[in-house]
């Protein structure tokens, strides 16, 4: 946004000339398209989900009836073929993916960010940063495949009761996937800490370790926190890796029980893929439950992005 008064003064006279109008309206339409996308998303998800919740006739291919919004949001049993539409079992799986992957990605990501911003020589940074970008650029379907074909078999001798599909290896690959996100946003925040603060620390006789942990990290806490939320939201929305690695049995699991991570589970995103591509689909209205999950997912990720924005803005240290 360039609300520069000089610039305005120089361009107002010509602002309504035809080429100016034409180009400006083109650019405006492009920008407005993003709003249209959001509106399209919201309208589509709500109308289709509403159709699902308000359906009164017996469901096609389903023995039971459609679920009310309350049943949908509080039920713990997911089985669209039998008319069980409790989204909580899917949410529990998604939560486990989120928790498991963040246990791996958050410490590693922050560590990476501190190293890159405080310790690495420019030369080393020039190698490591593109490396991390490549990590983020590997398709998620490949990560899913890695999980099921290499990671799970490698873990099986050490983890008793680990099946072909399990949440654990899905957590590991999703964690690896979101490290670059945590690292790059946190590093941006750390690089924004003014050099004078660091110099002040050194001037007081602090070591590099003390400056990093005592000054840089606290000063960039808001940025680090917002990177966490964005990474968690990415983990929630991650689809292919969990579809391939976590299995397709919906069950309501105790999120805090470590043993539950060796189980199979069906996260929300995987449930959507399964509804569209699996064999158990009842068709018709049962299929519409995909929109009900979709809007739940959309609302959760949207809320997390908004929170991250707020955190970044309200707690930002101004220098």
């Amino acid at each position: 946004m360039s609300g520069d008064s000089l610039e305005e003064a120089l361009t107002t006279r010509t602002a309504n000339a035809p080429p100016e109008l034409l180009s400006r309206s083109f650019f405006f339409v492009c920008a407005a398209l993003s709003i249209a996308t959001t509106i399209g998303l919201i309208v589509l998800l709500t109308t289709e989900a509403a159709k699902f919740f308000s359906f009164s006739a017996p469901l096609v291919g389903v023995t039971g009836e459609t679920a009310s919004v309350v049943e949908f949001l509080t039920g713990t049993n997911w089985g669209p073929t039998e008319g069980n539409f409790g989204v909580l079992s899917l949410v529990s799986a998604t939560l486990m993916i989120m928790i498991g992957s963040s246990l791996l990605a958050l410490p590693l990501g922050v560590g990476t960010a501190i190293y890159l911003s405080e310790y690495a020589s420019p030369r080393l940074r020039g190698v490591l940063k593109p490396g991390l970008e490549i990590l983020a650029g590997i398709p998620t379907v490949v990560y899913g495949f890695f999980a099921i074909i290499y990671i799970t078999p490698a873990l099986q001798p050490f983890v008793p009761g680990l099946g072909t599909f399990n949440i654990l290896s899905a957590c590991i690959v999703v964690g690896i996937m979101i490290i670059p996100m945590v690292a790059s946003i946190s590093e941006d925040a750390m690089s924004a800490v003014p050099e004078s603060l660091r110099q002040a620390g050194y001037g007081m006789g602090a070591t590099k370790f003390e400056v990093s942990t005592g000054i840089v990290v606290p000063a960039s806490l808001s940025g680090i926190f917002s990177s966490f939320i964005l990474a968690l939201s990415r983990a929630i929305g991650e689809t292919m890796a969990v579809t391939i690695a976590a299995g397709s049995t919906a069950q309501f699991l105790n999120v805090l029980n470590p043993a539950a991570y060796t189980e199979r589970a069906l996260p929300m995103t995987a449930a959507m893929v399964k509804l569209v591509g699996g064999d158990v689909t009842g068709g018709g209205v049962a299929y519409r439950s995909v929109f009900a999950i979709g809007i739940t997912l959309f609302v959760i990720t949207l809320a997390m992005n908004v929170i991250s924005d707020l955190v970044a803005q309200h707690y930002r240290e101004e220098y």
Partner: peptide, 11 residues
């Protein structure tokens, strides 16, 4: 395409 029996009919 593999869409599931019902998904295939409906969609």
């Amino acid at each position: 395409q593999s869409t599931g029996s019902g998904g295939g009919f409906a969609n």
